[in-house]
Design a protein around this nucleic acid. Structure first.
Lengths: 156, 156
DNA sequence: GTTATAGTTGAAGTCAACTTGAGGTCAAGG
DNA sequence: CCTTGACCTCAAGTTGACTTCAACTATAAC
């Protein structure tokens, strides 16, 4: 067993629940970083675990890696991120989750009315309506997870 | 303008809001069907629109095409599907949506407690917890849309 | 009959987020 | 010193749901 406070990929993988290949991929995408031993093996500082926790949490909320990347980029690089930094980043997730929940609820309520009538009319049914799942209040629906986003004709 | 009650791909595409390429793909996957003209062009019966509405609705709820396909296969082929048939199929969506909503709510509530503490601890934080988003009641979380499913270590 | 528009096929490309495989190297315990 | 298990890189493969392309043909309107 090594005695330093640096972690190998295997250790980080186990502690974070992510596959080593995912860790390499994240590094390649600039989301995390590691130093190298003289023999070119990765050694991670413990704080990478927090970063990975953030990444997982963000992915759970439905962000793409690109968005995660952008969020991480707003962290200060001259000092260690504080609680406040992480809090700031995760605060916007709440809105996103609220939007997602609202969208699902709308879908469900539309479905409830559809179950009564069995219509699934292209024109009238909220559930199968091609364009307008999120309704008309402005520019919503941007934060729906992929499978809940209605493919607007012409783009998937 | 043609006078029959059969629809061309273009017409079906416009009325359903789906791309012609998607319609061909669905046909290839056995989700819809069409007759052909002597010149080999597709002609759709009007009821394909209802089927497409179903497909879109199901996709909105997060089903894969394979699941949609399985659902459609339970429709009777000796008679036209009735309202009751469509209703039966869509009834299971409700449960799925309820599950999705519950999962998101759980995520949000976990987030609310995290915003206060800024922790994102791998061990304690519900939002970034690798294994256990849906909690312990049995085998839940099967119907979470892809981006909300936590990748269990070893599989994506 | 001509032309414009719309349709046909099969193969290949796209996207995100990884995983897998081949072929080779490192590190730690005995 | 040697073996074993962990690690390295780079390229290619995977999945689902399509889209795009090239090369060609049909149909409808005039």
């Amino acid at each position: 067993m090594r005695s330093t406070d640096l972690l190998t990929v295997g250790e980080v993988a186990e502690r974070s629940g992510m596959a080593p290949s995912a860790l390499r991929y994240y590094e390649q995408e600039g989301l995390i970083s590691a130093t190298r031993t003289t023999g070119n093996q990765r050694r991670y500082q413990r704080h990478v675990l927090r970063r990975l926790a953030f990444i997982r949490a963000a992915r759970n909320v439905g962000l793409t890696l690109e968005e995660v990347s952008a969020a991480l980029a707003t962290l200060p690089d001259n000092r260690n991120p504080t609680k406040a930094d992480w809090t700031r980043l995760s605060r916007t997730w709440r809105d996103r989750l609220d939007e997602q929940i609202a969208a699902l609820r709308k879908l469900r309520d539309g479905l409830d009315s559809c179950i009564g009538c069995g219509c699934l009319s292209l024109q009238r049914c909220a559930v199968s309506n091609p364009a307008d799942i999120m309704g008309s209040q402005g520019s919503g629906a941007r934060y729906l997870p992929r499978p809940l986003r209605v493919s607007s004709p012409g783009r998937r």
